[in-house]
Design a protein around this nucleic acid. Structure first.
Lengths: 155, 155
DNA sequence: GAAAAAACATGGGTGACACCAACGGGTTTC
DNA sequence: GAAACCCGTTGGTGTCACCCATGTTTTTTC
């Protein structure tokens, strides 16, 4: 029998590990859990997390080009095409040529989109509440503040 | 011209957005940046983040089964097979049948693995330092503490 | 002790994200 | 007007998370 291997202690969950003290690792695990919670919640509306993010940004920014949406949310232009395709197919946004700049599409939210957004916002908020259920409101705000400062790539 | 669309203010980066105040969204962005930094650093050693994580866990836990590795790190057993395959192919770990339980493999780190781990640990730590460069040491510890409490799925 | 249940390592496969290269049409800059 | 840049789009890749199935070996249950 190999010493230290197997035995009655081997069923201890989560033995101490150097890896799990690294921000990058913890961020990956926490993000995976957050994504799972939000994705499961939004699945009830047939939407993915990115759909909801784009829909929300469109509602805030008014008629907006796909490129600016991508810059605001940090989404690749290629991926934005597919997302707006889906939202347009479901009648949640309109995509019309920009009269002022014929390169751009003016993406705008529809009435159906607004109704859908209200529901997905509630679902997303609830999932985030569950995600941060172990935190006090003050701690949650602190987490948001810290994450905001390390999420940006540039400065 | 559509009011509020285009114009001199449209080049403002990152207009305020409701989405970007959600923990789940911030976690996703921060995790993506962290993964990018760590992955780029580890690429110099031909390893991915998961390789380093498994190698580090093997070094800590001594001879250990793949199933327990998976439970410790939250990695799917199927994915663990491929990771240990890679590490074994590169001579960083050994995979021998467990004499006490013939279902299990006893995964153990090799001398080469230890040398490699020292380098990848340095690279990973440096990448995490860059990731949290905007934070004070105290804030970094706070972030780690908060993340630890929301990363675990169960309790 | 024999049958049932569970655990282990593997295989095959899917979906969501992030990212990159290229290209044609449009616009701005010089 | 030519060069440089921006926009939307198509095509593709890589990483990670997750699922179901199977054969072998334990452990549990009766």
């Amino acid at each position: 029998m190999i010493p230290g291997y197997g035995g009655p202690m081997s069923d201890l969950p989560y033995a101490p590990s150097r890896i799990r003290a690294l921000p990058s690792w913890l961020l990956g695990r926490a993000a995976a859990r957050g994504h799972r919670l939000v994705a499961d919640a939004l699945a009830a509306e047939g939407m993915r997390m990115m759909h909801h993010a784009v829909l929300s940004a469109v509602a805030e920014l008014g008629p907006v080009s796909q490129a600016e949406l991508g810059r605001t949310l940090g989404i690749d232009p290629k991926d934005m095409v597919a997302l707006v395709n889906d939202l347009q197919r479901d009648g949640l946004v309109t995509r019309t040529p920009d009269p002022g700049d014929r390169r751009k599409n003016a993406v705008e939210i529809s009435a159906d989109g607004r109704r859908r957004l209200r529901r997905t916002q509630r679902l997303g908020d609830r999932a985030n509440a569950e995600l941060t259920a172990a935190l006090t409101p003050a701690e949650r705000e602190q987490l948001i503040a810290l994450l905001t400062r390390i999420a940006l790539p540039g400065e």
